[in-house]
Design a protein around this nucleic acid. Structure first.
Lengths: 187, 187
DNA sequence: AAAATAACTAAACATTCGTTTAGTTATGGT
DNA sequence: ACCATAACTAAACGAATGTTTAGTTATTTT
């Protein structure tokens, strides 16, 4: 054995994740990552292979960060009201850390949409699919809704979430809240 | 006087605009632009100064392309039904040319959100503000709506349009249509 | 027809990108 | 205590970026 790493991989990945979130993949350079992560380029490369590997790891980090939020959402038992709360939560969390822009998933999907990067693409669509599945689950708690309606409304909510994510920084908090209210008015 | 230009500036700008639309600003290189526009780098630089200048010109081109659509929308006189039609139109136009991804405005706003590029930023917010103004105008045709409701619903529609733009390629046409239906259900 | 000038081509430019390499420092086991 | 080895620093790498320059071609004016 030999010398120990002077940094914690999980910690530096989280820092990278936030930087990627702020700037997107292409606009985040290795120099910026070096500074933000507080470690040398060599260390980044020996820990994560290359920039792409670091990004994948950042996505995984995001995933685990978001898992808790999803878990809470999943375990709640007030149907549509939970979805609504989820909307509010996701907004307030992106207002809380107001450096972050919108939703990492939406941003990343947009940036990689023209590439052939299937790993990234599948990771992103899996995020969206999971969300849709949760919405369906919640909507099903209302027995008066037939299957078609549930699916329709779930798709609607996924798209509404997209709108929220895309506009979370350009619109005011009040506008966002009004939007959520109206979104749930006829569900 | 001397030699004439062998290309039409308007034509090549439109080609540049479509390329920027597909790839975003950063991911579109001068080499790609050279090929797509069909003219030499030198010609691009002598006509538009630099890459940024060409992009500004591309935005102006987009603006004039969209103006017609906006004008039609403005002159229609069926209130909310016109807004709904506008939603369908903007979706079908982005499905028609399925190379284009979502909405140029939303994409650009996302890409430039972290920069200090005020020219671009203002150009983008002006697009959004114009849209909101039109929505307000349409919603006002219903005398039963008070001013607050109109404003609230206009904001709602702007955000819904965002969601549509962000998800126009990842979701199926049917899902998009259902989304539009539900969006207008309680307006 | 010749001179002037603007538009063309293509190569070179400096800079930045992601990545690698060479050399140093620190820590582990024997 | 010493050697092996892993983690560090910093400089260099080639490729790609946006931009400029030098040199050629074509068109207008006199």
């Amino acid at each position: 054995m030999a010398r120990k790493k002077e940094y914690n991989e999980e910690e530096v990945v989280e820092k990278a994740m936030r930087l990627f979130w702020r700037n997107g993949y292409e606009s985040t350079s290795m120099q910026m990552l070096e500074k933000e992560m507080g470690i040398n380029k060599f260390s980044i490369y020996s820990s994560f292979g290359n920039k792409h590997g670091l990004f994948i790891e950042s996505i995984k980090c995001y995933k685990s960060k978001i898992r808790e939020m999803f878990e809470n959402f999943k375990n709640a038992s007030n149907g549509i009201e939970d979805i609504k709360q989820f909307f509010y939560d996701s907004v307030s969390s992106s207002f809380k850390t107001d450096e972050q822009k919108g939703c990492l998933v939406t941003n990343t999907y947009n940036e990689f949409s023209e590439t052939e990067d299937l790993v990234i693409k599948e990771e992103m669509t899996s995020f969206m699919d999971n969300l849709k599945t949760l919405f369906i689950e919640k909507l099903k708690t209302d027995p008066s809704k037939d299957e078609e309606t549930v699916l329709k409304q779930a798709n609607y909510l996924v798209l509404a979430k997209h709108g929220l994510a895309a506009a979370a920084r350009v619109n005011s908090k009040k506008e966002i809240e009004d939007y959520i209210e109206l979104t749930f008015k006829n569900l």
